[in-house]
């Protein structure tokens, strides 16, 4: 609806400013509370800032990063973070969410309503509550072991034997609804005629899915993967409630590691350097997905 007007460039610039004015409150808030901390992060990651306050902070260059990349603890935390993200988001939530969205299209209305209520219920519950539910569910006398015992299968204290897998399962349970909703919305826009045509041509269910339905929503898949990856990279409350990162660090992902270093051990500089690494990791994942999307555009 822009009308082409011949105006003095000065007046035009002023008009742009006036029109953009309503953006100011949101922009100011985001500059102060989002960009500010990121810049602060960039600064303090290169210092030996400590919470104890007393002594002055000095610039230490890449010391924090050298410490990070040579420490075994960081290596483990990074490994757990990647495991947690890949297993619970990229595989778990993504595949289960797509499976549910596809199955719901084929299922009856009652089953559809019941399952979506339950799955979304798990998503709406506050993360701390979800943590407690899973703490109880996986505990030594918890329901899972009761069921396994009933089936005469070996029982164990999952939070001790396989803590990172335990928190990953909990995160799949909690986060699948998001992918399910996104994929349901995307699938509802796939024209049924195209799928019917594939069936007429003799394609089986699996074949139709792989060659017709899924390729049609591939852009949504890439975008959804990016969103759930970033969400999962920063999960804190769920893991904290279930294991506090333990036992002996066996479920300490990067957010928990940064928290422990910064707040429990008062190494604010080191903690922010870790936060920066976490941000960079999110950036790398985003770039990969954006790259996939861009390649897509190039092909078409």
């Amino acid at each position: 609806m822009t009308t082409v007007q011949l105006e003095h460039p000065h007046a035009q610039r002023r008009r742009t400013l006036v029109r953009g004015l309503p953006l100011a409150p949101a922009v100011v808030l985001m500059l102060v509370f989002l960009l500010g901390p990121i810049l602060y992060c960039l600064y303090s990651a290169f210092t030996d800032m400590a919470l104890t306050g007393s002594s002055e902070t000095s610039f230490v260059g890449f010391e924090n990063f050298r410490k990070i990349f040579t420490s075994d603890e960081f290596g483990r935390a990074l490994g757990y973070t990647l495991f947690f993200t890949i297993v619970s988001a990229i595989i778990g939530q993504n595949v289960l969410g797509m499976f549910l969205a596809l199955t719901m299209r084929a299922g009856g209305p009652v089953a559809r309503a019941v399952v979506s209520a339950v799955v979304i219920g798990a998503w709406v519950l506050p993360e701390v509550v979800a943590g407690y539910l899973w703490l109880a569910f996986l505990g030594e006398d918890g329901p899972l072991n009761q069921i396994l015992g009933f089936l005469h299968l070996p029982t164990q204290d999952w939070l001790f034997s396989l803590p990172i897998l335990a928190v990953s399962l909990a995160n799949i349970w909690r986060g699948t609804a998001f992918s399910m909703l996104v994929y349901s919305a995307a699938l509802s826009e796939v024209p049924r005629e195209i799928e019917e045509a594939a069936t007429m041509d003799g394609a089986g269910t699996i074949r139709r899915l792989v060659s017709v339905t899924i390729p049609m929503v591939r852009r949504t898949i890439a975008t959804n993967l990016m969103l759930i990856t970033l969400q999962t990279l920063s999960v804190f409350g769920l893991i904290w409630t279930m294991t506090r990162g333990g036992p002996s660090g066996a479920s300490t992902t990067l957010p928990l590691f940064a928290y422990q270093q910064a707040f429990q051990l008062s190494q604010l500089g080191y903690g922010t350097a870790l936060a920066l690494v976490l941000l960079a990791l999110g950036g790398v994942f985003s770039l990969i997905y954006l790259r996939i999307l861009r390649l897509e555009d190039g092909v078409r």
């Binding site: 992060c41 303090s44 970033l230 920063s234 928290y259 936060a275 999110g282």
Partner: peptide, 12 residues
């Protein structure tokens, strides 16, 4: 998509 958890240390 910004992981809020990552910036909590500097926000503090």
């Amino acid at each position: 998509g910004l992981p809020i958890t990552a910036i909590m240390v500097p926000v503090y």
